[in-house]
């Protein structure tokens, strides 16, 4: 006859094993509840160069939890990152034997474009005036047998290095910095409230044509004896003026009681809240003279 004691002898180690397994699979105890509020900032990206005010329109800025000191590793990486200008990217391609026409350079320059994606090539005449576009248009014409479609889809037939090679190159550089910045924001959040929320402590915006952008619903966990929390605003990737690239890393204090608080880059610089990394471009690449009228390549039959 089986006795209850024997069952207990048998079941106890199993229960102990299961309990210890369950205990191991638990997350470590989270930090005590912290008071959490939301703040928001209206950021205006303007700064003065050679006595002239410049608006940093359509530029990405990032908000990262913590002070400059807390984000020292990120700042070190920003300082060490080198930058290539658009003109030098295409000049390099040309030096490496790639045929890039003067007309293509000039199209980018006069349209203030980084790539052919910035605006549509509207007319056949315009397409035929730039050899790269003419070649793409002619491929399209042969494939689709319609002029309107060949024009509309001109970028699909452009070689990738001249179409978006510069964008991809910049994206690689920026991607590494953004990953570091996200990690810095997450790490600062984890230290503050024991949360591993990937979105916490990091935001990005693009400024509008007036240089304004909003950081909304910013997580605020103020330190003791202070109702504000310190964040870092930075553009990570240099914004180029002339032969110099600028990266601003500015400390801002966000007050949850002041919604849409105005923060101006110019004032932050004046108040010495920013560290500015200036990067002399390794090379200034001269563009061809764009005042000459281009010759028209032939249209495919």
């Amino acid at each position: 006859m089986l006795r209850i004691g024997n069952y207990i002898n048998f079941i106890t180690p199993i229960i102990l094993l299961l309990t210890s397994l369950a205990a191991f699979s638990q997350e470590p105890a989270s930090s005590p509840m912290v008071e959490q509020k939301k703040g928001s900032v209206r950021f205006t990206a303007k700064f003065e160069i050679n006595g002239k005010s410049e608006t940093l329109d359509r530029k990405r800025f990032y908000l990262i939890r913590g002070s400059r000191q807390q984000n020292a590793e990120l700042l070190k990486n920003i300082a060490e990152t080198s930058v290539t200008s658009r003109d030098c990217y295409y000049a390099d391609l040309r030096r490496n034997g790639r045929k890039i026409s003067d007309e293509f350079f000039c199209w980018l320059k006069t349209n203030d474009c980084e790539s052919p994606y910035c605006r549509e090539v509207k007319t056949k005449e315009e397409a035929l005036s730039v050899p790269e576009f003419a070649a793409a248009y002619n491929i399209g014409l042969r494939e689709y047998r319609q002029s309107a479609l060949a024009l509309k889809w001109i970028t699909t037939n452009l070689p990738d290095d001249i179409r978006d090679g510069y964008y991809r190159q910049q994206k690689n550089v920026l991607g590494k910095l953004v990953d570091l910045a996200k990690f810095a924001g997450q790490e600062a959040t984890r230290l503050k409230k024991g949360s591993t929320d990937k979105a916490a402590g990091f935001q990005s915006i693009m400024t509008d044509r007036l240089g304004n952008g909003y950081f909304l619903e910013v997580d605020i966990i103020p330190p003791e004896n202070n109702k504000k929390e310190t964040y870092l605003i930075t553009n990570l990737l240099p914004i180029v003026f002339g032969d110099t690239g600028y990266v601003w890393t500015c400390e801002v204090e966000i007050d949850p009681d002041k919604p849409q608080a105005q923060i101006n880059l110019k004032k932050l610089i004046t108040d010495k809240k920013c560290e500015v990394f200036t990067k002399k471009l390794t090379e200034v690449c001269t563009l061809p003279d764009c005042s000459k009228s281009p010759e028209k390549p032939a249209e495919a039959n």
């Binding site: 410049e54 359509r58 790539s115 994606y117 910035c118 964008y167 910049q170 693009m206 003026f241």
Partner: peptide
């Protein structure tokens, strides 16, 4: 970012 990219001439 693609359509709004270029930093100033």
């Amino acid at each position: 970012d693609i359509i709004a990219g270029f930093d100033e001439p």
